[in-house]
Nucleic acid binder design. Structure first.
Length: 318
DNA sequence: AAATGAGCCAACCGCCAAGTC
DNA sequence: CGACTTGGCGGTTGGCTCATT
């Protein structure tokens, strides 16, 4: 059963023949375990892989695995590099800005994770996928509706997105205030302006930001947050919170992104506090609202009056 | 303190398309 | 043109961590 490598031509290197050809069933597991490593990568393996990629570049992963002496498949090496070792990979929770982008791009493209991830600097398709499955789908389950359903889209459009916009605005304001404070301090104590690193580290929300390389900013043009709002596939006009959108939109447009570079800077370096906007209380509230007015909500209407916006805004953010 | 369950994430699997021989 | 290799993608799973019982 275990064909570790499909014949000699595909053998990545000159391992003993038994390691690259079919082995007897009785010895399958033992041979596989002995020759091809699986499971979590060790620190040593990471160092070897990173060193080889740094020295020889990406690509030809089977050859690379062989040359590096890694008992891993080329696929495994590639995945480890792209998802974990590659410079600029961002880790940790998604920022509100990233959540907004994921929600919007998924509404446009569906499960095109790599395509979505391309617009989230430093994020991998795997991470976006995991975020969607663990967070977004969980909330959909709590609401008793499917992702992509009318109910879910309404919840996203009318609840989640406004909250994200609000949070983005708050984060930007806090960052601006922090920058102002640092500027004042630097005027008092230093002649030079604070560096970007100093600005970033001065803000609590930035302390956990992963190092970002220039590569991240060289990616495909990303829809910035303002385009997410103004060009969204969510129909704002039909929303009961259209006025709210309008004000939030102008706020975001005014304070953040208008160019690709700025989007990249925001997405790359301003790692705001990661929160899941759709916390339990929200889900419960929504679930109750849906339950209380099931007929109307399930009928495909836009649901303009099936909750009190004031009630929602009184819910705590966290 | 041990057992259990849920959440999360890294890694693997299978399939497909493009490139190469 | 067909076989094969490689890289990429989306779906799935195994295992770790943490909270709850």
């Amino acid at each position: 059963m275990a064909v570790l490598w499909k014949g000699s031509s595909s053998s990545p290197c000159d391992w003993p023949e038994a390691t690259v050809t079919t082995v007897s069933d009785a010895d399958d597991d033992a041979a596989a375990a002995a020759e091809l490593r699986r499971g979590p990568w060790t620190v040593e393996e990471d160092a070897v892989l990173a060193g080889h990629v740094a020295a020889h570049g990406e690509g030809r992963w089977n050859e690379l695995a062989c040359a590096a002496g890694l008992r891993r498949t080329g696929k495994s090496c590639r995945l480890r590099w792209l998802n974990y070792l590659r410079p600029g990979v961002r880790r940790g929770g998604f920022t509100p800005r990233e959540q907004l982008l994921v929600l919007d791009l998924h509404s446009r493209w569906g499960n095109r994770w790599s395509r979505i991830a391309a617009h989230l600097p430093g994020r991998t398709d795997n991470e976006v996928k995991n975020y969607w499955r663990t967070r977004v789908q969980k909330h959909a389950r709590q609401l008793g509706c499917a992702v992509g359903s009318r109910q879910f889209n309404d919840a996203v459009r009318n609840l989640w997105v406004p909250r994200l916009l609000e949070r983005i605005h708050a984060d930007d304001s806090a960052a601006a205030a922090a920058a102002d404070a640092d500027a004042d301090a630097s005027r008092c104590c230093y002649s030079a302006s604070p560096s970007h690193d100093e600005l970033s580290s001065s803000h609590p929300a930035h302390r956990n930001a992963a190092p970002i390389t220039g590569d991240d900013c060289a990616r495909a043009p990303s829809p910035d947050v303002s385009s997410v709002v103004t060009g969204s596939s969510w129909s704002r006009e039909a929303s009961p919170t259209s006025q709210l959108f309008k004000s939030s939109s102008s706020t975001v447009e005014g304070c953040s992104t208008s160019t690709e570079t700025e989007q990249c800077q925001n997405g790359c370096s301003s790692s705001a506090t990661s929160v899941d906007m759709f916390d339990e209380s929200w889900s419960e509230l929504l679930a109750r609202a849906i339950h209380d007015d099931d007929a109307e909500f399930g009928s495909g209407e836009t649901g303009d009056s099936w909750w009190s916006l004031e009630d929602i805004w009184e819910q705590p953010l966290y």
